[in-house]
Design a binder for these strands. Sequence first.
DNA 1: GTAGTTATGTATCAATCGATATATAATCAG
DNA 2: CTGATTATATATCGATTGATACATAACTAC
Lengths: 202, 202
Amino acid sequence: MIDTKKLGRPRTFDYDEALMQAMSVFWTKGYDGASLRDLTKAMGITGPSLYAAFGDKRELYLKTIDLYADVDGCAPVVAFETEEDITKAIKGFLSEVVHYATEHESGAKGCFLASSVVTTVGQVEGVAERVEAAIDDTEKRLAARFDREIEKGTLPADFPSRERAALLYDLRQGYMFRGRAGWSSERMQQDLDSRVQMLLSH
Amino acid sequence: MIDTKKLGRPRTFDYDEALMQAMSVFWTKGYDGASLRDLTKAMGITGPSLYAAFGDKRELYLKTIDLYADVDGCAPVVAFETEEDITKAIKGFLSEVVHYATEHESGAKGCFLASSVVTTVGQVEGVAERVEAAIDDTEKRLAARFDREIEKGTLPADFPSRERAALLYDLRQGYMFRGRAGWSSERMQQDLDSRVQMLLSH
DNA sequence: GTAGTTATGTATCAATCGATATATAATCAG
DNA sequence: CTGATTATATATCGATTGATACATAACTAC
């Protein structure tokens, strides 16, 4: 049913790689601050190629947001989900957050959503839904990880999973903001252990 | 010594009021998204008047950041500092934060620093220092309020004031982010009491 | 009054913005 | 091969960007 062979002249660039570069530009410079020149230069393609492959600037922007939600943004969440020991899982989540906030491979700092995308809510159509969906999705996954611990019996049956998931998310936002503001990884790590303890206390 | 009388033709607009309007525009549209047309229209002045009174766009931007730090941004902090009962003080702080995050008079949502200014760190010279200073200043004031409670004997001598101040600030960032993303005031208030309790537990 | 100083309004600058028209190159189906 | 289809590169569009030159208006000092 699915025909993978495409008609016409094939692309000379990698779609996903170009999209990742575009995300870096938006992340660093913001939506309005990122010019088409900046984007095409970083992506290594020309203007018409960009428009043919990704649509206009706004559509490209939305695609980079989806890319972040699917790949980049959930790295700490994955660390949280995969570690079996809940204490280590929380510490792993926060450590990953601090790491991301201070030294992302793209050179950008903080969280793409919290540091750049959030500015364009109400300005660029399609952004608000994506940001809200990203929050809901992440918090549900975090809460589910706590619930799993309740099932295992490691946490009491009345442990407030949703509340703690929301708290974990807020801590994440705080770290991301500090990272964007220039705080060092070391400075952010000093309260880490007591925060882990707080998140588990009941 | 100080001569309040000014030479030349007097201004026909209010400096501080115009600056406040400029802040609203930057808050809503971001630094790059705010055009000189947007700014002059909202401020009710012409281009040359803007440049004569505030300097170029970047200088005007920095002045709005300072205005926010001095006036707007610290409203919840003031609520926290002035309420004598520490439990009510914390709840007051968070309530004020939620209120600010959802319905600021300017029409903008979230925190000016967290929702707009943070995007321009590393892009607009002078922003990074201001954001970092805003964090430090706020956290110190929050910690001092906790310390005062220790002196009164309401909180134990080994109460981690600095840690809790940082936590309070991170919660603030989380609410501001949610506000910008479109969360309602009601939705944010549901965990408020348990968070107050958490901030005081030891 | 005149001289000096500052703000205002109009008109406009070069540069950059996002976006596209056009022609050419590279692939597949037949 | 031909025809259809899609990507590429060059060149450029009108609109908007941030910023200013200029002449005029409104004030103080004398």
